[in-house]
């Protein structure tokens, strides 16, 4: 299964809407185990994505993902800016020639995050959402339950990357804020492609 331009745009638009709506949820999650700004950061990114689309309607998938990437890279800052930015930049490069299977697209993004963050699954980061979603897509089992499970799996992890890692054992018992924002991303995807 692939996602085409119109749906892909709906996907990103729904994502940025959720980011704006859930700004304080994300800030609160980040206050518990980070520095309290993940919602503010992503909200800045969300507005930048909207601005960018308003300024120049992306003409193809590569442009859409690239515009999303640049908005994130230039406006989010923090850890999440380069991570989401790299994910979408790599996705943009990958679809330049030909559109990809959704499973491969998400795996490309996931690999970008892993490379930029020098990180992997089990470290209580957004990767713990991206990787399972990518697997589920491969196995045609992508649904809300998968997203919820992936997100909730971060709750009992001990963080080893990102700010939450400083808390060591005490990082347990909280959802990872980046995993939550990624869950919004995939909930938006689900809305668009139908659950």
């Amino acid at each position: 299964m692939k996602i085409e331009l119109a749906d892909a745009k709906k996907w990103i638009e729904s994502f940025v809407k959720k980011l704006e709506d859930e700004k304080s949820t994300l800030n609160e999650l980040d206050t518990a185990i980070g520095d309290g700004d993940h919602g503010t950061n992503m909200d800045r990114g969300a507005k930048a994505v909207t601005d960018s689309f308003d300024k120049k309607e992306p003409g193809n998938l590569a442009d859409l993902y690239k515009a999303t990437a640049f908005a994130m890279i230039q406006k989010v800052g923090g850890a999440s800016g380069p991570l989401y930015g790299t994910a979408f930049l790599d996705m943009s490069k990958a679809v330049k020639e030909d559109n990809l299977e959704l499973a491969d697209l998400i795996q490309t993004g996931t690999d970008g995050i892993k490379r930029r963050g020098e990180s992997d699954t089990g470290m209580k980061t957004m990767i713990d959402v991206w990787q399972p979603i990518s697997e589920a897509l491969k196995n045609d089992k992508f649904n809300q339950q998968v997203i919820d499970d992936a997100l909730n799996s971060t709750k009992d992890m001990v963080a080893t990357k990102g700010r939450a890692s400083y808390l060591e054992e005490k990082s347990k018992g909280h959802l990872d804020p980046g995993a939550q924002s990624s869950a919004y991303l995939f909930e938006s995807l689900l809305e668009v492609i139908g659950g």
Partner: peptide, 11 residues
Amino acid sequence: AGEVFTSPTPD
């Protein structure tokens, strides 16, 4: 200078 408690962006 980045935003409060947030790294500045690469550009």
